[in-house]
Design a binder for these strands. Structure first.
Length: 211
DNA sequence: CGACTTTGACCCGCGC
DNA sequence: GCGCGGGTCAAAGTCG
């Protein structure tokens, strides 16, 4: 797309994933420590109640290497509501969100459309960060189901994932930089309504639940 | 057989 | 208003 469609306030980070030790497993990582690292490094921990990179928070990385790296290509995600509409977003997400759409497809009735429009504008809070990894899908403790992939500009093949947990509408988008295939940009949208343990039985993931 | 992935089509928002 | 491009749907295919 030409113009930045409202380059959003999506937060972005760059994390370097150690090449070995399957970067995606949340192994023995000290999440608390990780968080400190993040903050110490200037990572922004949202203070307004949105889910910190839902599960991204404690990402499985020991050593985040860079900070606040803007996404290379402008991403169209206007994230204005990040700081303002969390509660609404949460409600929307839980009550009418896409699930509404699940039962009554949003492309059907015209009356629905108006709702949808509103909903569409009310984007979920988003977090994006970059990682250097050979694998696309980070094991953040949640279970994801791919629901789409598309070739877009400035990105090879962004994949779209949705949390498989019922009533959880969290989505994430995974894309690789065209310039550096090892760079993976993961964007989380929404907030988990359950703990990672519901999906993956790992005590480490309990940490995420605090967000 | 159920869960998941792939993929083409569709819809909508935004810039011009 | 039009066209482009991103995001999502859903049928079909694949896998365990």
């Amino acid at each position: 797309m030409e113009g930045n469609r409202g380059v959003g306030a999506s937060r972005s980070y760059v994390l370097e994933v150690p090449p070995l030790s399957s970067p995606l497993t949340m192994h023995q990582m000290e999440f608390g420590q990780a968080e400190e690292n993040l903050q110490g490094l200037g990572f922004m921990v949202p203070s307004h109640g949105i889910s910190f990179p839902p599960s991204t928070a404690g990402l499985p990385f020991d050593n985040p290497t860079a900070v606040n790296s803007e996404k290379p290509a402008s991403k169209p995600w206007s994230n204005e509501e990040v700081g303002t509409s969390d509660p609404k977003v949460g409600n929307d997400q839980n009550s009418s969100g896409r699930d509404g759409a699940d039962s009554c497809r949003w492309k059907s009735a015209s009356s629905e459309k108006s709702k949808v429009k509103v909903r569409r504008k009310m984007r979920e809070p988003r977090f994006c960060f970059q990682t250097r990894s050979d694998v696309d899908v980070l094991d953040d403790g949640y279970k994801w189901r791919k629901y789409g992939q598309k070739v877009v500009k400035n990105s090879l093949h962004p994949s779209y994932y949705r949390c498989t947990h019922s009533n959880c509408r969290v989505k994430k988008r995974v894309e690789r930089l065209s310039e550096d295939c090892r760079m993976v940009i993961t964007t989380y949208e929404g907030r988990h309504t359950h703990s990672p343990c519901d999906d993956a039985n790992s005590s480490e993931h309990e940490y995420f639940n605090s967000f």
